[in-house]
Structure formats: structure tokens, C-alpha cells
Amino acid sequence: MTLSEIQDFLAVADSGSIRAAARVRQITAPAMTQSMARLEAKLHVPLLLRTTKGAQLSDYGKAFLVRARAITAEVQKSVNELAHMRGDSSQGMLYFGTSATPTTTLVPDAIADFRKRMPQVNLNILGGLYRDHMPLIRSGEMEFAIGPLPAAGIGADFAVEALFENNLILAVRRGSPLADATSLQELQHAEWILSSPAVQGPGAAIRDLFAQYPDLAPPNIRVQSSSLSVVQTLMMASDMVCALPREFIHSPWLQPFLVEIPVREKLPSYTISMFYRADYPLSPAAELLTTLIKRHAHYFMQAREKQAAPDREQGRPGGA
């Protein structure tokens, strides 16, 4: 099979029809049909199911799609790497993922340093959590991602490097009567918003926190969202409480509107990690950026420790 045939197949898979794929690939529809017929003949299986609604992938096609994306991603990485070696500044793309916390703490400074060293490389950054990034890393489309991982791990096919511990706090809008609460007991009747789209994840850890105290009813969760802008907007318009990373409350776009609730109970923390495929080396561009991210994670932890030292001396909760 040829790379062109694989790229034609991906165009059909992404567009859902022969005609649309032909337009994307800038060939005629009959030429696209012939390309798919040749590929199916070489693989000895039907990849597509022709229907009145277009072209759908067969079970064979769905299985081949994963490998096809990996093949084209590896070819593009090779093209980029050779372009870097010959000093061609017109090519290069680095695709990685990041959750909200590293986006506000590590990524901007690391990218600033990266741009000084590899200004020719364009960056494609996908937000979200590990469940959004893992399939893309497995397929070879994405090089690495940064964010919290489940306690059970994500499998032996990924290499994982811990970057820093992320502490949660409880937050509410400035001026809310709940801002003066000093314990979870005083928040028994509060409404909650979770900064997580599922029952698992850092934002949803508040459920586990309440479960540690048998005399407390479960939190009254009214909204769940992984969008920071949604969380911020709803909190500013209500008295809903949310568990957020400590760094968020000090960010320029949240500090004017939200305040920490100084409860005495110890809140959960979780690890921000970097992960990538264990069986394949990172590209030179990804190797550089991951090195810079780890360096800035070290700087971040040093700054946090320096800031926390006076708090510990004075017995303030921020030193935990």
C-alpha cells in the first residue's frame, strides 16, 4: 500500500463520504473510489460500507483507522525532524495536551523559552484531561500531555513523570455569606459546582472529602463542568462553592472575583504529571519542550516553597 492511499482512506474516514474526501485531497471522486478499491484489494478486507448516507467504516476499517493515523503521524514526525536537521524554518508542528493547572503555571514560561530556541516550530495545544489525550498519544498524533492522572494509573504503554503536587482549596464569590465559613459543617446546605465532567477527577474529590466525615451529608452538587470559564461565570452569579487548585485563586482573572473559604479540614491534593508513549522516542522538538516544562516545574515548586515558609511560621493554612 502507498502513503497516498492511506491518506485517502483517512480523508474518507474523517469526512464520511467519497465526494467530500475527494475535495479534501483535491482529486476526482472516481479517483478516490479507485484508491479505496486498491487499498481494500491489498488488505483483502472491505474497509468501507457504502450507504445512502455516505461511506461508513466497517469493523475492519475501524481497526485499520488506528494504525493509519499512527502511520501518517510517524511519517510527519520524520519529515519535521529532517526539516529541523537541515535548518528549514518553514516546517514543523508539535502537538501536545495540557489540563488547566499546568496551563496557568508551567506552560506559558516553558513555551516562551521554547520559542527562543525553536521559533520555526508551530504548536498545537489541546486542553482537557488525560481521557481526552490518551487516544491521541496512542495513535501517534499527539506527542505528550500534562495533567492529573487517576490513582489506578493509565497503563504500562505510557511513561509517566511526576511534576508537582497540586493543592485544592474551597472557593466562592467575593461577598458571599459562605466566605466566612471555617468548616465543612457550615457548608452543609451550600450548593456545589464540580470542576470535573465525571465522578472521577480532581474537581470531584470533594465527594471523597465529605465521605470521610460520617456526620456530614453528601455535598449538594448542582453543576459539573470541566470548563473553567463556565465554573467562573456560574460562581460569580451565585453562592455555589467549588474545589479549585490553589494557584487558580491567585490568578489575575480569578483573584478579583473569588475568595478562598478557610475551612479547617485538610483538603485533597493530587499530582500533576507528564505522560507519553513508552515505546517510542519523542521528537527533538517534544524532547526540548518537555525538558523546559520539567525545568519550570522545578522553579514553580521552589517559588511555592519559598512562599509557604512564612505561612508555616505563622501557622496559616497556606503553608500546608
Rank of each mutant, 00 (worst) to 15 (best):
G92V: 07
R19Y: 04
M240K: 12
H44I: 09
I249P: 00
S99C: 15
T290C: 12
E191T: 11
R174I: 09
Q7M: 13
R131C: 06
K306M: 10
A145I: 11
L126K: 14
D180H: 07
F64L: 11
L82C: 04
M142A: 13
C242L: 11
G92A: 04
L47G: 03
S283Q: 08
S225W: 02
P310V: 02
T51C: 02
H84P: 00
T105W: 04
S176W: 00
S238E: 08
S58W: 04
L216K: 09
E186A: 07
N124D: 15
P256H: 10
D239T: 03
G16Y: 02
A20L: 09
T98F: 01
R25D: 03
L170V: 11
A278M: 13
A286L: 08
A63F: 02
R207H: 10
P150F: 02
A13F: 04
G140N: 06
I261T: 01
R69F: 00
T103P: 00
G203H: 10
S269I: 05
G147H: 08
L244M: 09
P218W: 01
V259R: 03
Y95C: 14
S227F: 01
L288N: 11
I111T: 13
L47K: 13
A73Y: 01
P245E: 04
L228A: 15
A159G: 04
T182F: 00
L163F: 01
Y130G: 07
E165N: 14
C242T: 12
Q212R: 15
F144M: 09
S225P: 05
S273C: 08
A278D: 14
Q232F: 14
I272L: 14
E161G: 00
P245G: 07
L216N: 06
F64H: 05
S283F: 02
T2F: 00
R117D: 10
D59M: 10
A100R: 13
G92R: 00
V263F: 03
N220H: 11
G61F: 03
A285S: 12
Y280N: 15
A11K: 09
R117P: 00
L209F: 01
F114R: 10
D311F: 03
A286T: 10
A110K: 02
Y270N: 15
R23T: 12
V107H: 06
A112P: 01
P177M: 01
S176K: 01
A68E: 11
G155A: 09
P177A: 08
R23Q: 11
P108C: 04
S229C: 12
P214M: 02
R264C: 07
S4V: 12
G203N: 07
T28R: 05
E265C: 05
L47N: 09
R19G: 09
S283A: 12
D59G: 11
K42D: 08
D279A: 13
G16T: 11
L267W: 08
T104W: 02
N80C: 08
R25E: 06
S89I: 13
Q255H: 15
M301K: 13
P245D: 06
G319D: 02
L94R: 11
F144C: 03
